[in-house]
Simulated assay, not measured.
Amino acid sequence: MATVDLEKVLDKAWADKDLPEILQAPVSALKGVSDRDGDLLREAFGVRTVADLADLKYVRWAQALAALAPAAK
């Protein structure tokens, strides 16, 4: 299983939180995602939390396509 350096993917305020709390955090808890980005994700896709973003079908589809890419070469 891959490990994730939480300090690289989360804003400082969230890096020391436990996983259940992070998953329920607003998407702006992710490093590089602004409050405005979070507002736009909510408006466009109903995404409110990190868990919502992870479960967004478009994200899952894009990840599946990216995983297939090496086999297509």
Rank of each mutant, 00 (worst) to 15 (best):
V59Q: 08
I22V: 04
Q24P: 11
R48E: 15
F45L: 12
W61I: 13
A64Y: 10
V4Q: 01
V59R: 01
R48Y: 14
V59T: 09
A15T: 02
A51N: 10
L30S: 11
R42W: 15
Y58N: 07
L6D: 00
A64E: 08
D52S: 06
D35A: 14
V59P: 04
V50E: 02
K31L: 09
A15P: 03
L53E: 10
V50T: 02
S28K: 05
A13L: 00
P26W: 04
R48P: 13
T49V: 03
L19N: 01
L68G: 15
K17T: 09
W14R: 13
W14N: 13
D18N: 07
A62P: 10
T49N: 04
Q24E: 04
R36C: 04
V4C: 00
A25V: 07
Y58C: 12
D37L: 03
T49Y: 07
L40T: 05
L23N: 07
R42N: 09
A54W: 06
D18W: 12
V50W: 03
A64V: 11
G46K: 10
A54D: 11
P20Q: 15
D18P: 12
L19D: 01
A51V: 00
A64D: 05
D5V: 09
D55I: 09
P70H: 02
V9L: 06
A25N: 09
L10M: 09
W61M: 04
V33G: 07
S34G: 06
A13C: 04
G38F: 02
K31C: 03
A29M: 02
A29S: 08
G38H: 07
L68S: 11
D55R: 15
D55T: 12
D37W: 15
